[in-house]
């Protein structure tokens, strides 16, 4: 894999933690995500991966530690301000507007970046917004499903729409919570291909259970167990890590 000439930190957490009623869902997590890299987070269910994403996106406020983005301390920022910095996220459970068409979903996402409130011009009249929405649909292979109500799309298409909405906001950093969850092999391959294309222009933090996918796309892998980081490194390093094998990978690949 070609290494970029100069490594540049985009996202950094220090000793990040979150308690839920005394229980630590995330504890002492220090991560460094570099520009243009795909950073996968893996771990068993209940390891605190989704909580971590929620802490990065501002959906949850941390109980301890800091989050920095592009050299700025964004700890505790509300979700909408984090999003406006160019951090997009997708959800593990499909989180789309079911009564809207695919295009309307993306337009709603794209217009979140309008600089000013727009009360009197019709939504359909904002050219740049509609173009951005259409572009996101096309990227995700949904151009033909543009006017289909989200509720009547297939599960895989809804997952793609989820990604398209995120892309329509024009983010630089993508936080992806199990983008391949629940997909059949064919859909999965298609979305993986999409993710590969996106990786060219974006920095990505991705939770994923599909290990083949993770090892094929990730530049960096962090393994979480019980809310803490067990190991972090390149795929090769992770594969060779004894602790990881014992705790996690061992289950799947007893060699």
């Amino acid at each position: 894999m070609a290494e970029p000439a100069a490594r540049e930190t985009v996202l950094e957490t220090r000793k990040l933690g979150r308690l839920f009623g005394g229980l630590a869902a995330v504890q002492d997590v220090s991560l460094t995500v570099e520009r243009g890299r795909v950073h996968a987070i893996v771990g068993p269910n209940g390891a605190g991966k989704t909580t971590l994403i929620n802490l990065l996106s501002g959906d949850l406020k941390p109980s301890a530690g800091t989050v920095g983005y592009e050299g700025r301390d964004i700890t505790g920022w509300p979700a909408h301000r984090v999003a406006r910095l160019g951090i997009g996220r997708s959800y593990q459970k499909t989180n789309i507007f079911r009564d809207f068409t695919a295009f309307e979903n993306c337009r709603l996402a794209a217009q979140a970046r309008l600089p000013r409130l727009s009360l009197l011009r019709p939504a359909a009249g904002h050219r740049d917004v509609t173009e951005q929405a259409a572009h996101a649909l096309e990227l995700c292979g949904l151009a033909e499903r543009r006017d289909t109500r989200a509720a009547s799309m297939s599960y895989g298409e809804q997952r793609q729409l989820e990604l398209a909405m995120m892309l329509a906001t024009g983010p630089q950093l993508l936080l992806l919570d199990e983008p391949l969850a629940g997909m059949g092999p064919e859909e999965s391959a298609r979305v993986l291909d999409l993710l590969r294309r996106l990786a060219a222009g974006h920095t990505m933090v991705m939770i994923e259970h599909d290990m083949d996918a993770v090892f094929s796309i990730a530049d960096e892998i962090t393994v979480m167990v019980n809310g803490s980081v067990l190991a972090s490194g390149t795929p090769a390093e992770i594969r060779a890590n004894k602790a990881v094998q014992d705790a996690y990978l061992g289950e799947e690949a007893p060699e």
């Binding site: 996106s57 501002g58 959906d59 509300p78 979700a79 909408h80 999003a83 406006r84 996220r89 959800y91 989180n95 789309i96 507007f97 079911r98 009564d99 809207f100 309307e104 337009r107 709603l108 996402a109 217009q111 979140a112 970046r113 309008l114 409130l117 727009s118 009360l119 009197l120 011009r121 019709p122 939504a123 359909a124 904002h126 917004v129 909405m165 906001t169």
Partner: peptide, 23 residues
């Protein structure tokens, strides 16, 4: 019909998602 109106409808349907989109 404006983006503002669509945003309101979006908020009603799913407030958290609207926040994550940057609203």
């Amino acid at each position: 019909r404006s983006p503002f109106g669509h945003t309101l409808v979006g908020i009603r349907a799913n407030e958290g998602r609207m926040r994550a989109l940057g609203y």
